[in-house]
């Protein structure tokens, strides 16, 4: 497994709050290989964004990585300080944020902002090379280079998100983390952007982590999918296996609760209850209060996250609903 660009081992992260620690990420391990697209899906508060922020060490001050390693190109970034981590950002790992307007500085043109990132991290390039690279990046994300001297507010929502992607790609990162980049966009714009992101990722043979709450979007962009629930990674397998042969009851529930406009109009399943409060998570398996298959052991001991068939991982005492 030397081709893993990113490896996360037993990551546990808490947010310290007034009311006590919030266990946002609980003992999560996964890896992403070069050229692979990993989708992370889950509901709000399941810890998917916390993972993204941990990978870039962009966590707020009250976050505390309790244990675990984050290996980017085999180097553990958890103990690194601010100056050291800055060398990693952009060049080895970069991020596309959900709110494109906040990621862009309104007082500089889009070109200036991309150039700034490059000057910082690719100092060996000449000015002409950099300018040429900006044009290439604009072409790559499907923006007309004639817009590069404009300010972010002159762009439409879709264009802004493309500009943010161009910026994230500017220093040729090995891995890119995309956190809900299309959520605020309309379907037609979203569709174009999703196709573009997928194409770029394949063309540059880059590793990508795509985070979304939208199961359908994840189906479109990922090779492999991880399903998160209440700070746990509950299931991870190839996209095809997750959608057609899910074994964790939560994954199954999520799939059958998600409406689609194609195919038979099946009855949507309602999952009972609500996601737990992570200040005080349920004992044992965190899904057990809502799980139809839960037995005594589920409330006592957390299930081990292990392989149930080829590259199909899950953390469940009753995988596939069997006793």
């Amino acid at each position: 497994m030397t081709d893993n660009v990113l490896e996360v081992k037993n990551l546990t992260m808490h947010y310290m709050t007034r009311k006590g620690p919030v266990s946002a990420v609980d003992n999560i391990s996964f890896s992403v290989a070069r050229g692979e697209s990993l989708g992370l899906v889950g509901e709000s508060g399941c810890g998917k964004t916390s993972i993204a922020l941990s990978l870039l060490k962009l966590l707020p001050d009250n976050a505390d990585i309790k244990q675990g390693q984050i290996l980017i190109n085999s180097k553990n970034i958890v103990p690194l300080n601010y100056a050291e981590i800055c060398k990693f950002r952009w060049k080895q790992i970069s991020m596309i944020f959900q709110a494109a307007m906040n990621a862009l500085n309104p007082v500089y043109t889009v070109e200036e902002q991309i150039l700034e990132a490059m000057q910082e991290h690719l100092p060996h390039l000449s000015e002409a090379e950099m300018n040429q690279r900006v044009d290439e990046l604009f072409g790559l994300v499907g923006l007309d280079p004639k817009f590069k001297n404009q300010y972010p507010h002159q762009y439409s929502g879709g264009m802004r998100q493309r500009a943010v992607i161009a910026m994230a790609l500017s220093c040729e990162p090995d891995i890119i983390v995309a956190d809900e980049p299309t959520t605020a966009l309309d379907v037609i714009v979203q569709d174009a952007l999703l196709k573009r992101i997928r194409k770029i990722q394949e063309k540059l043979n880059m590793a990508m982590i795509y985070i979304s709450h939208n199961v359908a979007v994840i189906a479109e962009v990922s090779d492999r999918v991880g399903v998160m629930y209440a700070g746990n990674l509950v299931e991870m397998a190839s996209t095809e296996a997750i959608f057609h042969r899910p074994i964790h009851p939560y994954t199954r529930g999520l799939m059958s609760a998600f409406p689609s406009i194609v195919g038979e109009k099946t009855k949507l399943v309602t999952l009972p209850g609500e996601p737990p409060d992570l200040l005080n998570p349920p004992t044992g398996c965190r899904y057990h209060p809502r799980c139809p298959y839960a037995t005594a052991i589920c409330s006592q001991e957390a299930p081990e996250y292990r392989e149930h068939g080829a590259q199909h991982f899950a953390a469940c005492w009753h995988p596939g609903g069997e006793a």
Partner: peptide
């Protein structure tokens, strides 16, 4: 156009 732009929760579709 609207219909064909809606993502489908089925990777084989």
């Amino acid at each position: 156009a609207l219909l064909s732009a809606v993502p489908v929760p089925d990777p084989t579709y």
